[in-house]
Amino acid sequence: YFQGQLNAMAHQIQEMFPQVPYHLVLQDLQLTRSVEITTDNILEGRI
């Protein structure tokens, strides 16, 4: 994955969860590489 793709995914998640800091979303995406998994992590309070 290149950074631009991760940034696009992070923006997509931020639209759904504007209360979660962008850098935390991006940090999780770098591990998961998945909008779905990061979204689940937010919903389950891991982020």
Rank of each mutant, 00 (worst) to 15 (best):
S34F: 03
L6R: 02
G4T: 11
V35Y: 07
I13F: 03
Q3L: 09
Q27H: 07
L26P: 00
L31N: 12
E36C: 10
L31Y: 11
R46E: 03
I13A: 01
L43D: 02
I42A: 02
I37W: 09
H23A: 07
M16L: 12
L24F: 06
M16R: 12
D40M: 15
Q19P: 02
Q30P: 00
L43S: 08
Q12S: 10
R33I: 07
V35G: 05
L31P: 01
Q5A: 11
Q27I: 10
L29G: 02
V20G: 00
L31K: 11
Q27P: 00
I42D: 01
V20N: 01
H23K: 08
E36L: 10
D28E: 03
M16Q: 08
T32P: 00
S34D: 08
L6Q: 04
Y1L: 13
T32L: 02
L43K: 13
L31C: 07
I13M: 05
D28N: 06
V20Y: 10
D40C: 15
V35R: 07
R33T: 07
N41F: 02
S34R: 04
N7A: 14
R33S: 09
Q12K: 13
S34Y: 04
L6M: 10
G4A: 10
S34A: 04
M9L: 13
Q30H: 10
G4M: 13
Q14G: 08
R33E: 10
Q5L: 12
V20S: 02
Y1F: 13
T38D: 01
I13Y: 00
G4L: 14
D40V: 15
N41Q: 01
V20R: 00
V35L: 10
F17H: 05
A8L: 12
T32I: 01
L24S: 06
S34W: 03
T38K: 00
Q30L: 14
T39W: 08
N7Y: 15
Q5W: 15
Q12C: 07
N41W: 03
M16W: 08
Q27F: 10
M16A: 09
I42H: 01
G45L: 05
F17D: 01
G4V: 12
L26W: 09
D28A: 04
L31F: 12
R46Q: 05
P18G: 03
P21K: 06
N7W: 14
M9K: 05
Q5R: 09
Q12W: 10
I13G: 00
Y1I: 14
M9H: 06
V25Y: 02
L29H: 01
G45D: 05
D28C: 05
I42S: 01
E15H: 13
D40E: 14
V20L: 09
N7D: 14
Y22H: 07
M9T: 05
I37L: 11
R33N: 14
A10W: 07
P21F: 05
Q27N: 10
R33L: 15
Q12E: 09
